[in-house]
Amino acid sequence: MKLIAALGNPGQKYEKTKHNTGFMALDHYLKDSNLTLDKDKFEGFWTKQKINGKDVIFLEPQTYMNDSGKSIAQIANFFKIKPEDILVIHDDMDMPVGKIRIRKNGKSGGHNGIKSIIACLGTTEFNRLKIGIQHPQKQSVVSWVLTPFAGEQQKQMDQAFETSEKIIEDFVSGKDAQYLMNQYN
């Protein structure tokens, strides 16, 4: 069984903000696949689907970014999903807007959502799909991540969401992190 978990903040106030890049990427995939997050349990909205004969769970934690690990750990523990079968989609300020990077494991890189997941799962051994949102030039980090993408940035993100869709499809089909890194990094 695979778990695709996207990070973001719940509610309309945050819906189109940079910090919700993970939610936006997963929403893009779900829309194109005619899927919806139809369950509200484990402190998140989720759905369980059979894709190519394999069970896959798609999750958007509703715990706010800094507590994302609570929801992910609950669903992973309940369904006995191994960390290497988890793909977390999240924003990354240390990369240019729309740049994609796959990581097999590692530290949080200062991302509070990833810190929470590491703490709650008790491991760094889960996969990440990082999407660049760029570091703010002239405003605070909090202000930056809580504003929407503008003009050209939104076009770059739309392209990143298309690529993310392919990455999710490959991960669900059984491609491992090394393959994904070679293909998309």
Rank of each mutant, 00 (worst) to 15 (best):
I72V: 14
I100V: 14
L37M: 07
V145G: 13
E125P: 00
P96K: 12
K39I: 00
V141T: 13
L30V: 01
I102F: 02
G132P: 03
T21S: 10
R128L: 04
H90V: 14
I118D: 13
G106A: 07
S68D: 13
N20Y: 04
Q134I: 00
G53M: 03
R103L: 07
K107Q: 06
Q137G: 10
Q139M: 10
F58L: 07
W144R: 00
A25D: 07
P96T: 08
L146P: 04
P148K: 08
D92I: 01
I89K: 13
I133F: 10
A150V: 10
A76K: 01
A25C: 06
G44F: 04
L121T: 00
N52C: 02
D32V: 00
D94M: 04
E125C: 01
L129C: 10
S116H: 10
N77M: 13
S33L: 06
G132R: 04
Q137I: 02
S116I: 06
T123S: 15
E43W: 03
M157L: 15
K70L: 15
L26D: 15
K107W: 03
T17M: 06
D92R: 01
L35W: 03
D55M: 06
T17S: 14
L35P: 01
D158W: 02
L59A: 11
Q159I: 02
L87K: 08
Q74K: 12
T123C: 09
